[in-house]
Design a protein around this nucleic acid. Structure first.
Lengths: 231, 231
DNA sequence: ACACATAAGTGTTTTTTGTACATTTCTAAG
DNA sequence: CTTAGAAATGTACAAAAAACACTTATGTGT
């Protein structure tokens, strides 16, 4: 913030682009949309839109996501701004990337452009327009760092889940195999899961116990500033 | 990026604000400037200015910093965008925060507004305008996280420095005392410093060995993805 | 009804990393 | 030549991470 007068001629368009990560019990996925307008019509892109004068960027991200997919009450977090002069061939546009984590199966699309939005496995995602590939790469790095600091899963898993699913989630995020016993020991030592009496009988003859997050305990621990989740 | 037409009415002013951290061999400091224009004239603020149409945000940050302080060739990194609707009472402005690390003693100010820029101890910094306090808080958190991941010091220390100075730097960043022997052991185990034959005789009768970073080794190690600098 | 296939569930040992801690060395100054 | 003051240095203990393999439960198929 400086310069003695606020000049009209240097105003620019501000957009938000959302990297929506999803987990479907097997794979980490990303939500993309096929553009049906120029420029770059027909190509895949992140979900995005322009910020309006009367809202801030966080609000714009929430609004845009709901408008295009029907997804609501999704927690989103800002990544960073992308501002290369020629990033959008249509007009000078600065875009601020947001990312979010959701459980694929418990969120239904019903946005107006539903037919064009699609979940891709992260490893099989198509090439994206503009600098969206960079945004995704950055978001993946952030997700990875974050997964090592806190037990994610609140957002990416359904209410009830098996230990195996949580491990698979971590394996997809970190893109490496983890040892089952060490993983379970680590998770249990964190003491933020509740083991239910219920079993998921679809995954094995024996069945697998279901767990939920103990949100209260979790919040208390985060507040007490003690979480290190190195796996 | 969406919507079928790029609308004129939703353009906004884009600013950059720079959190410049400095180290003067004793304290971690932050560079602030006294505003001499409205709004909020006379109050302290971060160094900032507007992005121009023909540059990107990174370039704007570099330009603004040099224009106001004469500081050049400073590596800066984007933090995030601040976009509250009423954050700047003058006009709707979105600001993107940048932060940088420099060695206070080896950088001279000679910008046109030199007289108004001033280094503050981080702990004694005055209240800042707008949302600049938030920006600083966020930048400190980032600096702290970063210090735990990589040996900073390249940027915050002079070419040659003593082990004690490096430790003091870490102590100011992390805001806690560290054990001298453990610190030295840790640093040495990283194997990225070169111990010179030279001593700094000003710090003790005995003198203290000077070190430099072995940038090549450092870069190689970072590339090989192996650094964890928990202290 | 019994054997089989399949994934779940579970502990211990070894290795690595972090932490706590005290004495000796060097040299300029008096 | 004594002294003051910061630099330099290593070891033992504790905690955390990593490596590692067998048993259990139950639905399915014969």
């Amino acid at each position: 913030m400086d310069l003695n007068h606020y000049r009209e001629e240097d105003k620019v368009l501000l957009a938000v682009d959302c990297i929506i990560f999803g987990f479907d019990k097997h794979h980490l996925r990303i939500l993309l949309i096929k553009r049906n307008f120029e420029p770059e019509s027909g190509k895949w892109s992140l979900i995005g839109g322009f910020m309006k004068r009367e809202e801030d960027l966080d609000q714009a991200a929430v609004r845009v996501l709901e408008a295009l997919t029907g997804l609501r009450d999704i927690y989103m977090e800002q990544l960073q701004a992308y501002s290369k002069v020629d990033r959008d061939p249509g007009e000078r546009t600065i875009s601020v990337a947001y990312y979010a984590l959701i459980d694929v199966d418990s969120h239904q699309f019903d946005g107006p452009r539903l037919e064009t939005a699609q979940w891709f496995k992260l490893s099989e995602a198509p090439d994206l327009i503009f600098d969206h590939n960079d945004m995704v790469e950055k978001a993946v790095a952030r997700l990875r760092r974050r997964a090592l600091k806190r037990p994610i899963g609140f957002e990416l898993l359904p209410e009830k889940f098996t230990m195996r699913q949580l491990q698979t989630l971590y394996e997809s995020i970190l893109d490496k195999k983890l040892d089952k016993r060490n993983f379970v020991n680590k998770i249990n030592s964190l003491d933020v899961l509740i083991k239910l009496d219920e079993k998921d009988m679809t995954v094995a003859r024996k069945g697998a116990y279901l767990y939920t997050f103990d949100k209260e305990k979790y919040d208390r621990k985060v507040a007490e500033e003690g979480f290190n989740f190195k796996i």
